[in-house]
Design a protein around this nucleic acid. Structure first.
Lengths: 162, 162
DNA sequence: ATCAAATATTTGGACGTCAAACTATCTTGC
DNA sequence: GCAAGATAGTTTGACGTCCAAATATTTGAT
């Protein structure tokens, strides 16, 4: 403990003393955005802890359950990640039999991925947990939800295409 | 291109066609949180691109400029990262002469880090860029800034100590 | 018909994150 | 005193992310 510049720690310093925010960050949107995102993601991860599910699978499986059949490149566009990022995740999903790769007959460079039945089951399980997490966030955010999402979308829209 | 379930792409599909959100994520706070945070961070990174500065340095240098002298463990508490995360960053900062390590005379295991003059200069440069980014975010968020920060802080508070 | 340009995917390197294992050192209890 | 447990810091391994470079394949142009 004993952070030099910090005032003497009063009783039960363990309780929430860790939430001290550097004053330079107190009014910085980017900082709060990051911290909130991290805690949200880590909470979700923790909820998946005991299962054999990985947080990174969820978005892929969900998108696949909506689109039915996508190439890795399209998948990367939809989920907003670099193509190279997906390679290892797709490999893992394929190994576990959750997705199927199918060669594109018109283009030997390309293939498409789609959920297997097992993949659909897995997605259902993940989705249940994700919804639980959503409900938790919704409860915290409360009536401000629409405002929050609108602001976040505005940030993405304004910065997104850099 | 050609995302199967997507309507035919009209002219200049590059422009912003990528902003299609999977319907399953449309009302999910965690999703928007993540996307917004990512785009914010990447914008900041891009602003640092041409300099010899790393985004990861900024928070460390800033905290150090406030606290003057901290052990790695304290630093990890203040910035909310695992201790092991800091090891390599501190090494890099030390190599570049931006921080100084000083042995704790009372405990051979421990040392403290503090900014060198060069580190202070570097922090000033980084801070200027960070403030530019902040202003950009503030402009986007507008009058909702306080609400936004309040909501984000609420999320951190509620989920944080999980 | 061939060769250059565009496209699809993978690979490799850099960074950031955590958790768990490990070393060294300090503190405590007996 | 000394062994046991706590604490400081590092290392390692798994994951996730990006970008740039390499590979394969197709398309287009001459």
């Amino acid at each position: 403990m004993k952070v030099s510049a910090k005032p003497a720690e009063d009783s039960q310093s363990e309780n929430e003393s860790d939430v001290l925010i550097p004053t330079a960050f107190r009014d910085v949107v980017g900082y709060h955005l990051r911290v909130a995102q991290e805690v949200s993601f880590q909470t979700f991860s923790a909820m998946l802890e005991k299962s054999d599910l990985k947080p990174g699978w969820y978005s892929i499986l969900t998108i696949l359950s909506e689109y039915d059949e996508l190439t890795p490149s399209d998948l990367s566009r939809v989920c907003g990640r670099d193509r190279s990022t997906l390679t290892s995740t797709l490999k893992g999903l394929a190994i576990r039999g959750l997705i199927e790769r199918r060669q594109n007959p018109n283009d030997q460079r390309s293939y498409s991925v789609s959920l297997t039945d097992e993949g659909r089951r897995m997605h259902t399980r993940l989705h249940a947990i994700a919804r639980e997490h959503d409900r938790r966030l919704d409860a915290i955010v409360g009536k401000d939800k629409e405002v929050l999402i609108a602001i976040l979308a505005r940030i993405v829209g304004a910065l997104g295409k850099g």
